[in-house]
């Protein structure tokens, strides 16, 4: 039996989801930037790109992200999960700037800051879930 999820547990799982997304995207982008051909609409090029270790690690992290995010959706409302995990967008901007030497303009930083404030606002809402959740079967 899982029992009632506390606010701390929900926020902790949100942090894990955010970290997996940021690291997965970074690894994926790094690998794709070094792919020999543009992907376009050629399925074989997608498969070839997946052989790259960074792309493969990125995909593995994003599969883990998908599963943990699904678990988070079983704990909390979609309208809670979406804005809170939006902090991942801030993380992506920072990682892109630091590791991929992407140029982030003042407008983008301002946008990133707004996303962060929006996510924080939702993160402090008192309820995470509409109605009472049924428990996982034993």
């Amino acid at each position: 039996m899982i029992g009632h999820r506390t606010r701390t547990q929900t926020l902790l799982l949100s942090v894990i989801v955010i970290a997996l997304n940021g690291l997965g995207n970074l690894s994926l982008t790094w690998g794709l930037r070094h792919a020999p051909d543009p992907l376009g609409l050629h399925p074989l090029r997608y498969l070839r790109a997946m052989i790259d270790p960074f792309v493969a690690i990125g995909i593995a992290l994003l599969i883990l992200w998908l599963l943990t995010r699904m678990a988070l959706m079983s704990w909390a409302d979609l309208t809670f999960v979406l804005p809170v995990t939006s902090i991942g967008y801030v993380l992506s901007a920072v990682l892109g700037c630091v590791f991929l030497q992407e140029v982030v303009s003042i407008e983008r930083w301002a946008g990133t800051f707004l996303i962060f404030i929006g996510a924080m606002l939702v993160g402090v809402t008192t309820h995470h879930r509409t109605g009472r959740a049924p428990e996982e079967p034993k």
Partner: peptide, 20 residues
Amino acid sequence: GKRRWAGAVLVAAGVVLLAH
């Protein structure tokens, strides 16, 4: 609630800025 709507609007406004 109001906070969630406000949060969602701020996130969307952030996206608009990012698109520039």
